[in-house]
Design a protein around this nucleic acid. Structure first.
Length: 309
DNA sequence: ACGCGTCAAGTACTC
DNA sequence: GAGTACTTGACGCGT
C-alpha cells in the first residue's frame, strides 16, 4: 500500500506561523479592525508560504490551523473574513488543488456538539460554520472537519444520543464534512466506529488515543475502519511524551520508529492507499526524521513523503 | 530581547 | 460551588 505522511499547522523548518492572533480583551480596548486586518493578511501570506513549502517538499497532506482568522467565532464581533480576502483564498486554494494536497481541519476543545449546554452547542455551530467557510473559500473539494464525540455528562449512552440528535440538527453541507475521531479518555475505537456506521460518516483512527483508551483486538476492526471512508482513509499517529502517568497522553516531539513499524505491520495489505497525519510537536521535522528512519529500515519511498508498506 | 502570566470559548475531577 | 488540571501556541506586559 502507498502511504502518504502529513503534519499539522506549523512548519518548524520555515519558522513562521499562520496562527497569529489578537486577544479579545486587547481587541475590545479600541476595536482596532485595522490591526485585525493586518494579522489576517499576515496569516494568509504565511499559509501560502507553508503551502509552497509543502509543494516543494512533496508533502501531500496537511492540517490547517483553526486560528487562521482570529476572533472569527466571537458572538458580538461581526466582520467579513471571507469576501474581503477572497483573492488570498483563491490563490492559496489554487495551489492546494493544483498539487492535490489533502487538507483537513480539527476544531479545538470548545467545539462540543453533544454538550448539555445549549449555548455551547450554539457556539459549536458557529465554530463549524467558520471551518466550513474557510474550506469553501479555499475551494477544497473533499472537506473534512474532525470532531471528537465530546462530553460524557449523564453517561456515555446518553451523550452519544445527544451527539446524534445534534448532528442531525446541523445543516447538511456541514454534516457532509464531519468525521469522528476516538479520544484518549472516553470514546474508544468501537464507540466511534459504531457511531460512524450509524451516521454513515468516516471514522478517523487516532492510534495514540487508542493506546491510551484501548479496545481488545483492534486488528479485527481495521478493515471496517478503513471502509468508512469513501476515498483514501486517513489516521492519526503520535508517540507518548513520557512513560509516566502524567505525560503518557501528551505528544512527544518525534515519532517512535519501533511503534510506527509495529503499526505498519498491523495494517499491511488492508488498503491500496492510506494517509497518516503525524501529530508530533516537532511538526514537519518529526515527519522528515520519520522518513529517514523508515528508509534506514528499508522502506521504499516513491517521493519525499510517500512510501510503500 | 526575554521571560512569564494570561488568553474567548469546555469538561472533568477534587475538595 | 469553587478551584484546578488538561493543553496549546501565541499574546502582551514587565523588566
Amino acid at each position: 500500500m502507498n502511504i502518504r505522511l502529513g503534519y499539522v499547522s506549523i512548519s518548524k523548518t520555515l519558522n513562521i506561523t499562520c496562527s497569529k492572533t489578537i486577544t479579545y480583551s486587547n481587541f475590545k480596548k479600541n476595536n482596532d479592525l485595522n490591526k485585525l486586518d493586518k494579522i489576517i493578511i499576515e496569516n494568509l501570506n504565511n499559509l501560502e508560504k507553508i503551502i509552497d513549502y509543502n509543494i516543494k517538499n512533496n508533502i501531500h497532506f496537511y492540517r490547517l490551523t483553526s486560528k487562521l482568522i482570529p476572533l472569527a467565532t466571537i458572538d458580538n464581533i461581526d466582520f467579513d473574513y471571507i469576501n474581503k480576502y477572497k483573492k488570498y483564498y483563491q490563490k492559496i486554494g489554487q495551489k492546494i488543488n493544483e498539487h492535490q494536497i489533502r487538507i483537513d481541519v480539527h476544531p479545538d476543545q470548545f467545539c462540543v456538539l453533544n454538550s448539555t449546554k445549549s449555548e455551547v452547542v450554539k457556539n459549536t455551530h458557529k465554530i463549524l460554520e467558520y471551518h466550513y467557510n474557510i474550506l469553501e473559500a479555499l475551494n477544497i473539494k473533499d472537506k473534512v472537519i474532525i470532531l471528537h464525540v465530546g462530553s460524557s455528562v449523564l453517561g456515555k449512552e446518553n451523550s452519544i444520543k445527544r451527539f446524534i440528535n445534534n448532528f442531525y440538527k446541523l445543516p447538511s453541507h456541514i454534516r457532509k464534512c464531519i468525521v469522528i475521531e476516538n479520544d484518549d479518555k472516553i470514546y474508544n475505537v468501537l464507540d466511534c466506529l459504531n457511531l460512524c456506521k450509524q451516521l454513515n460518516i468516516p471514522f478517523i483512527l487516532d492510534y495514540h488515543h487508542h493506546i491510551c483508551n484501548s479496545i481488545d483486538n483492534i486488528e479485527d476492526y481495521l478493515a471496517d475502519i478503513f471502509n468508512t471512508w469513501k476515498y483514501i482513509p486517513k489516521i492519526h499517529f503520535s508517540s507518548h511524551k513520557a512513560n509516566t502517568k502524567k505525560d503518557f497522553r501528551s505528544h512527544h516531539d518525534y515519532i517512535n520508529i519501533d511503534d510506527f513499524i509495529d503499526f505498519l505491520n498491523k495494517i499491511k495489505g488492508l488498503n491500496d492507499n492510506l494517509d497518516i497525519m503525524i501529530e508530533a510537536k516537532a511538526k514537519d521535522e518529526a515527519l522528515f526524521k520519520l522518513t529517514r528512519l523508515l528508509k534506514y529500515n528499508n522502506y521504499k519511498f516513491i517521493d519525499e513523503t510517500t512510501f510503500i508498506n
